[in-house]
Amino acid sequence: MRNPKNNKSRYQPPSVPFRVRVQKDWKHNKQVYLMLIPVVAYFIIFHYIPMAGVQIAFKNFSISKGIWGSPWVGLKHFRSYFNSYYFGRLIKNTTLLSALNILFGFPAPIILALMINEVRNNKFKRTVQTVTYLPHFISIVIVCALMRTFLSPRGLINQLMGTGIDFFNKEEWFRPLYILSGIWQEIGWGSIVYLSAITSIDESLYEAAEVDGAGRFTKLRYITLPGIATTISVMFILRVGRMMTVGADKVLLMYNESIYSTADIISTFVYRKGLLEMNYSYSAAVDLVNSVVNCVLLLGANKLSKKISGSGLW
């Protein structure tokens, strides 16, 4: 992880008067600014105007009055969210799903990378990689459809076990299925980063260890793992930073009313309340709470990751 930022050369020394600098800048860069018009327009329209639209969380939004014309109601929506029965359940479901997902999903690609690294036959190595990367490219709709097919009461899994469990209507099965299917889909793809970290470890370390008579596990423990420790910690920090960002899409494909008690998370709740029931202000408030928590987590994660490795999200 090199940092190519040392050759930053100032275009103009700062002693030049501001007006002159602006003139020079315009003369040299007006085409750059022209190029940036659509880019800036995109960020303003689809990111900054919506940010201004967050104010509806403090208003009673009505379509006829619009975002700016609707009356202010202060923290009413936040209060009703924090006091509602859903608040505890949503926080619990979201954090638990995410935490368990990290607990089981995070180590899986690392273990796979270490296992692939131990394979000596290059052809077999490449085959394992090709095959395990594949599920990453299958759309989430198809993945959920496959799960529903194989896990239906009369589906393949039940046939093999001789049971008739209705997995998708059992609240206790939602989290295991969510996490396992995530591992299935991402284990191979996630291992790429660690494999590339392993290949950048100095080969002479291994040779020296072999001369000293180190076995496989000794080398794994004292060379490979320390060699990828930075990558692991950065990936872990960034993952935890995204902890409260659990997308609605996969859950929407997996849940139904009978398993809301474990499956309903913040993003699906916002989707239902906002876009199906059209409680725009209330669900914007719910979403805003989450965005703020996310932002704090991400900033913290970014700072920590920069401290450890010198590079973060940005």
Binding site: P50, V270, G274, D287
Partner: peptide
């Protein structure tokens, strides 16, 4: 780092 959420 900061997103407005789906409603806005």
């Amino acid at each position: 780092f900061f997103t407005s959420g789906i409603i806005p």
